[in-house]
Nucleic acid binder design. Structure first.
Lengths: 219, 219
DNA sequence: CGGCGAAAAACTGTTGACAATTCACAATCC
DNA sequence: GGATTGTGAATTGTCAACAGTTTTTCGCCG
């Protein structure tokens, strides 16, 4: 690798944050499964750093709920049981509802068009039963709505909750036909937003998340 | 200090978590004001530990939003400008609304009585214009409602948001008469909960928080 | 063969030292 | 006088080593 580049990276970013991102990636990609212990020595060797940055990164991950730290035993990738996952869905529903409420009064036509474009793409993916295409579009749709509100803390919090929910193995959209139902709800959300109806937007967003929660747990 | 006690603590709790709690306390008590830098060496000496645990604790604090880490410059107690504080209030309003919605269907008479007792105590404090008595009661009231839902993640999240909001200097309840208005809203919340009306409980909780937000920013 | 216990290995918790960067301040130049 | 640059102190980033705890291994006895 180009050593100049490496130095430039080091100047503006600590090893801790690099390690942190790498660990998040490994957890998201499933290279580290739920319940796995994060071996500090092994990780340090693997990533070419000492244990200090590894430990610091783990403390950040602990606070964001991705790992659990047990004294003298190590840090473990968190496992979400049904209750914990359901709790996250309720939280997410609430935050998404607030996003709808905040965005409705201020949404621009350009933003609405962006959301519409995503809905159209999701329609194609749903028709093709292509979950791999649908899933990231769905994420983008929700993230855009939150981002458009301008509430940065809400955005980072939603993203954190989303990442944490990823620890739950089962996926909502696996069920056949779920994609079309989900996208129909997206249309209702966008319609409420376009009408600048804060209360309806909040309700549609909240119910949309709770619906997928019910689909997951077979209410 | 008794060395045996210190050792026992060490067995079941790491220095990192002790340091973390101490730093949280110092920030909450105002010993560390917004914008202050946390000098690692000074803290290490003051707390009688090395820099390792200090740094690890700071990484946790960063994730929970209490401090900001700037590479090669240090960690600083976060300062909330009006926008950031307003963002937190909206988030808090949303989470509290969900707490109301979740609790309404399942609240017990014993729990309602607990809340009623707190309201009575707050009445006394409001009549005496005793903000120092009112404030912690108010916190307990909200925390109990969230706790009664049984959603542990929601409780810890609300507490984290609450601590973070503490970084904002100005206090809502300072305004004269605010205590009585606030407690009147508490009564309406409890009434909705007792009626097991989820939608009304959600709305009252959400509006209660947003009202104090408006009082703070002079809507 | 299976449980038991002690020694050994592996691992985490903590520390002090070293390297790299930033900050404070004085000397210099325009 | 004001901006600038150079130097030393202070501070953060990283690392390697040591201490204490947990887990594993392995020999021993019933």
């Amino acid at each position: 690798m180009d050593p100049t580049l490496a130095l430039k990276i080091r100047r503006t970013e600590s090893l801790t944050s690099l390690v942190r991102r790498e660990l998040e990636r490994m957890i998201e990609m499933g290279e580290l499964a739920g319940g796995d212990r994060l071996n500090e020595n092994a990780l340090a060797t693997r990533l070419g750093v000492s244990r200090g940055p590894i430990r610091e990164a783990c403390r950040g991950l602990e606070q964001s709920g991705l790992v659990e730290v047990v004294v003298n035993r190590g840090v473990f990738v968190r496992e979400l049981d049904n209750k914990a996952a359901a709790e996250l869905y309720d939280i997410r529903a609430s935050l998404m509802g607030m996003a709808g409420r905040l965005l409705a009064p201020i949404i621009t036509t350009a933003q609405a068009a962006e959301l519409q474009a995503l809905i159209n793409d999701m329609d194609k993916a749903a028709k093709a039963e292509d979950l791999n295409a649908f899933y990231p579009l769905n994420l983008r749709f929700h993230e855009k709505i939150v981002g458009f509100t301008g509430n940065e803390r809400l955005l980072s919090l939603c993203n954190a909750i989303q990442r944490e929910a990823h620890l739950f193995r089962r996926r909502t959209l696996d069920a056949p036909g779920r994609m079309k139902v989900s996208n129909a709800e997206h249309r209702r959300i966008l319609a409420a937003l376009k009408k600048h109806d804060a209360e309806a937007s909040r309700r549609e967003m909240e119910e949309h998340v709770l619906t997928s929660k019910d689909a997951l747990f077979g209410k």
